[in-house]
Amino acid sequence: MSSAAAAILPPRGGPSGAASDAFWRHPKFLLLLLLTPPLLWLGIIYLGSLFALLAQSFFAIDHYTGMIDYTPTLRTYRELLTTPANLDIIVRTVLMAACVTLFSALIAFPIAYYAARYARGKWKALFYLGVMLPLWSSYLVKIYAWKLILAKEGIFNWVLAKLHLYWLLDAYLSLPVIGGNSLSVSYTGTFLVFVYVWLPYMILPLQASLERLPNNLLEASADLGAAPRQTFWSVIFPLALPGAIAGSIFTFSLTLGDYIIPQIVGSSRLFIGQAVYMQQGTAGNIPLAAAFTVVPMVIMGFYLWMAKRMGAFDAL
């Protein structure tokens, strides 16, 4: 047919035309071209270093010479898992991460719920930016702000003194474990800063899951005679849970790996991140540092697997 003949155009001229035709005819080739640079970058630089690090955890340091002995061994892992001090560090970090996650969820829920279900128009934008600005403002500045707040002559003590509640703080600080000489050198201080810094990461996925909550489910629940409390526990809570778990991936993972917050606001008792930092820096024990990093990786791997089973990734 004549129209078919006209539809088949002659090949385009010039190198760019030829290239364009080639890409069209061989989409695999174009795909390869698109994927090669990012894959090379992430594969070589990122995965390469990650595997190199993992590999080093199977070497061990010779404690007499301080040199790394490059024969594969599990000695470093044995050292990691049998030294009580190291186990303490792991347990302490995981407990802290769990507490931070739980409290972030508690504080985040009302904000997320209000933003998702009541805020409209201008207020919606305000809530969005109200979460986004703290999320993106400088991590160090946020820690610094807490250093200002918790300082002896700072605003927190000033408010307590004005309210004549100093005795309450003293009573709190005399408690074992969570207390200390002052808030800025106690677990409570570290905990507060962790919650503060990671809170927005919890709010966003929680809000996303609450926005998807169909209104008619709530209506149905009320129509069937459920009290607000019952509606909350049997309708809202289960549907918001994937969002909370998605948020907890961030709060948990970030707490596990952080070494700056406990260093600046906290007691001298170490967390995993600090242990890694010390082992690779002052102690020069790269194998042990590498073995330490495997702990958060394993915990997070397990955590992500659980989260995936509970459908948290759809809420991200």
């Binding site: 994927l35 990012p38 894959l39 992430l42 594969g43 630089i45 990122y46 995965l47 390469g48 270093s49 990650l50 190199a52 690090l53 080093q56 991936i249 993972s253 970030l254 596990l256 790996g257 952080d258 070494y259 991140g273 890694v276 930092y277 690779q280 790269i286 540092a289 590498a290 990093t293 958060p296 990786m297 997070m300 992500l304």
Partner: peptide, 23 residues
């Protein structure tokens, strides 16, 4: 590939840092 792209921020930063440093 999606996972690979997300991994550098999904894993704690200290892991990325120390991995690069030792590399």
């Amino acid at each position: 590939i999606s996972l690979l792209v997300i991994l550098p921020i999904a894993l704690p930063g200290i892991i990325t840092g120390i991995a690069l440093r030792s590399a």
